[in-house]
Design a protein around this nucleic acid. Structure first.
Lengths: 203, 203, 203, 203
DNA sequence: CATGAATGAGTGTTCATTCAT
DNA sequence: GATGAATGAACACTCATTCAT
């Protein structure tokens, strides 16, 4: 139990440093100093720097999954649009709260050494899958227009949410619930209504 | 002039290697070998590795600006929606053609050491500004709905386009004009019409 | 008594690991795992890794001495040549049986950090002393030729026996009594008869 | 050419340090300091520490082969016994002169990590092969007794010569030619004549 | 101007040993 | 006594940068 606590403590520190400096500019020594542990200690808990980084991500992945998941009861009570709305909102809430993870994902980018990249991809894929699933459901139930490409929409949404996180969340102090709500609306609205006025759509 | 040619040659090689391996996993030696020059030579043209990277980006930035620019004549002849459509299309075309730059931007992520990050931001800001400008114009002329937050929409679009590039462009062989057209439509459509059917919008 | 048993158990394990991997490539952890004891425990019985290694050797040294010793009764009943023969045979028997120790001696070489080297030397010196003693006795009784340098012969014999152990014993499954007998003869014979025919010795 | 000189210089220094401290207790930094070069420089010439060690041995292996080789002209003019005598003498001369290599071989022992051990084996095998070849020739020409096991004799000789090197050469200041001659005789003699008097051989 | 041999500050990692429980 | 989590000195090796030629 004691050991598990220490492991968690190291992960907390590592997460913070990785979030601040990115993988390559983080030195194992930085984590050690922040965690106030000996140099050898970190290798008792993690095979190497890469494993430490993976472990940080792995622990957060589950949190993320939980955070943006929508329960069966909720599903029943929601209209398609509010369902979609909720998913976006929960993503923003999570990113708003776990800024360190968000920073790591953003900093890490889509490149990176292939090992690590595959892992980062997990996160996107997860968000992507959840949203794709929502949209599929909506389409199946006839809520969505027929000529909509779900995969493309999903990519746009994920990319959009991530970019919003970069500009409207990470650079600001933690947002209030109301602010997150407003942000959610601003994202969801155009997908629901479109952004052009009816009379300007003849092209 | 001979010197300028050599500089360009180094930049070409550097761009390719940075695109393949990312900044940190690219060694100056890799660039040197590809360029068939001596180890010291590169430092005749660039202060250091960071400067080399910046220079690669700097050269491409102008290309990008030109690529997605829309001329005054074009502006006059376009409806708001096709204007928006054209901007997205040109972005995709550019990314489809300059895959190395696209890969660098994607690999580099939004984080990075602060120096470099600021620079990568330039690219996004540029795309962002162009799109924001389009939307502002549209709004001013009454083509856009009133309650649309232009900055948020812009971020979503930029993030969306980048993510589309990652999934639909970089992982595929170079797309044909027709394919780019189709992709553009799939992106633009939901913003124009929304994705939900009218009768499902009561929330 | 319990403690002594444990100490012996650790020594047994250490001997095995040192025999397999040599001093430097043996990690204290290897011994601990094999002995199924805690990491700190080994330091209750041995000051440090070097002391552990010494202790393994020390314990075996007495075994070796006993193994190649020839009793007073035996001495009386043996001709000088068979006496010499018996000494060589007992050395081979011991090496054939205690392969772990033999391996340690061979692996350790004659060099090593000076501390340990002195200790390894003990083993050789012991074999050396016994053989030297035999030869002296033989010379004293007029059994040996006058112009034989006993120290040199002794060194050759010890070196020879060790090398034979390396090539004919360690690399084979445990030899039978008969095989050891044959090997002994092959070693002893040339020293008794020489290897050249009489008529080829004009030099 | 300059580069080759530097490489040789590093090898010289490495040889000396390896001879003094053995492989494991030699630190790359020791070699660097002795060679008065920068830390990175050694890795320009050798892949890693192991490669450095191999290279030291490799260079000396040829020297050794040359040193104990006997030319065709010499072969014709020698009696079998003096031929054998010459081989032993040349081995001693080489060991007497190249004490660093001799020390490395002795220190390294037969153990070691398998990679390196294989290499050390080369040296012994080389000496072994030359002597075995001599003895075979002798037997073929009828100079050697029939019931002599050449492989066993060879092992004894190699082990004996090495042990003599350890006790009579390395621990002493460099021997004079006369001293080497005497030592050679003391080794060769018993193999030629045997060491027991005729009348003591009934066993 | 071009070169590449030389450099060394900086990194990740190991492993014998300690000491609080 | 017995334990094993914690430690840090030690070590091999990297790679951006320099400078004599």
């Amino acid at each position: 139990m004691k050991a598990e606590l220490r492991r968690q403590h190291i992960l907390d520190c590592a997460k913070q440093v990785f979030a601040e400096k990115g993988y390559y500019e983080t030195y194992v020594e930085d984590v050690i100093k922040m965690a106030h542990i000996g140099k050898g200690t970190i290798y008792e808990y993690f095979r190497n720097k890469e494993d430490l980084f993976f472990s940080v991500l792995l622990r957060s992945l589950q949190d993320w999954k939980n955070a943006i998941a929508i329960s069966h009861e909720e599903i029943k009570q929601l209209s398609p649009a509010s369902y979609f709305h909720l998913r976006v909102k929960r993503s923003l809430i999570f990113m708003n709260e776990d800024r360190q993870l968000t920073s790591i994902i953003l900093r890490t980018g889509f490149g990176f050494n292939p090992h690590i990249q595959k892992f980062i991809g997990e996160f996107e894929k997860n968000l992507q899958n959840q949203i794709l699933h929502d949209l599929r459901l909506g389409k199946h139930l006839g809520f969505l227009k027929d000529n909509v490409d779900l995969h493309v929409i999903t990519s746009i949404l994920v990319g959009g949410i991530v970019m919003i996180a970069a500009h409207y969340i990470l650079s600001e102090p933690v947002l209030s619930d109301v602010e997150v709500d407003k942000l959610t609306n601003k994202i969801v609205y155009p997908f629901i209504k479109g952004i052009f006025n009816e009379n300007n759509l003849r092209e």
